[in-house]
Design a binder for these strands. Sequence first.
DNA 1: GTCTATATACGGATAGAC
DNA 2: GTCTATCCGTATATAGAC
Lengths: 211, 211
Amino acid sequence: MEKEQEIEKNPSTEEKIKEAARRVFTRKGYAATRTRDIAEESGYNLALINYYFRSKEKLFDMIMVEHLQTFIHSVIGMLNDRDTSLQDKIQMLIGHYIDMLVKNPDLPLFILREISSSPGKLVEKVNFEAKHEDLYIIKQWKEMDALRQGPKVNPIHMMMNMIALVVFPFIASPLLRDRTGISLEEFNVLMEERKKLIPIWIKAIMNSATE
Amino acid sequence: MEKEQEIEKNPSTEEKIKEAARRVFTRKGYAATRTRDIAEESGYNLALINYYFRSKEKLFDMIMVEHLQTFIHSVIGMLNDRDTSLQDKIQMLIGHYIDMLVKNPDLPLFILREISSSPGKLVEKVNFEAKHEDLYIIKQWKEMDALRQGPKVNPIHMMMNMIALVVFPFIASPLLRDRTGISLEEFNVLMEERKKLIPIWIKAIMNSATE
DNA sequence: GTCTATATACGGATAGAC
DNA sequence: GTCTATCCGTATATAGAC
């Protein structure tokens, strides 16, 4: 308790280097990051990185695992909550998720980039806490889908749709901003709008008759 | 004509190296690719890369520009076609796009990764042929939106939604496959399904009342 | 714990033989 | 045109002073 507060207010050198590494790795990815960049960003010397973390790779792995856990933890709990309706769950989930992404806009591209370049290497180290099929939201969706007209839709589509609508704009943000000329502030306003719009859209998708 | 056929059937060394570079760069990105990887992939020696292309960076830029042009060209024409209705346009666009992505599943992540790591560096070299606001499909969407109930929705949202629903699954494919355990074949079946489903979903989104 | 200086390895690029 | 051998800058990692 005391120790944790100390870290908050008065971070140790180790913490400061880790924070610097987190920023640089997240922005540029593993391969494009030099330990010198991290040293510079942290305000300390290059040698200290190896003193505390032994190697670039070990430091990176640590950050990666933490990122994945942040990401997963922020979501899994809600996906499995048995007391909220599907609609409420979706609403909360999306609001929460977008808030997190506005604060950490580089996170999705970072995770997808690094996972695609070494698939399975780190994913296995992280506790996902639940298999995909066991998620309570999937059960809820299946129940809902059973009442609908037309052929059934694989719940994977629904998960993909929800995540795609929320996450993709953040991944495409540099290209989007370049093409449309909108500023970062305008982009964030759009993301705020989406907190309200996406749940409506998801509902519309769920109710859409498949011809 | 003769010359182009020759390249098809009996590619020159230069072409073979470029193809190898295309594969490796697309999969791993610029920073994580070593010229030695390209040499190995091509079956030729390292020195030949510099003989034909002067430097790793020049070779990469060439590939990048070609990729961007493929990407843009496959889409812009349709977005601007004045003879098809909005619905038909969306249907065609999505089918065409997904077909292309099934053949080139690494393309989206490649483009987004490289653009985010050097924003504006190469985008400017590529002719996008149209500013975002001038696209005919945007006009069509605005007309459609004007007839709808409720507050108007920024057309940027619609473009983002369409692209997100189509592209995101390909970007997330490694993570998705790891989590759900589905195979590449099963993934492609899902993508086939989406060719029919996404246009329906987009229509539902467009017609959704915003409370 | 933190620094400077240095060892070691790796990757991009070139020289020169064939 | 294509190869082998090598150069040289840069990046990671360590030794050792303070």
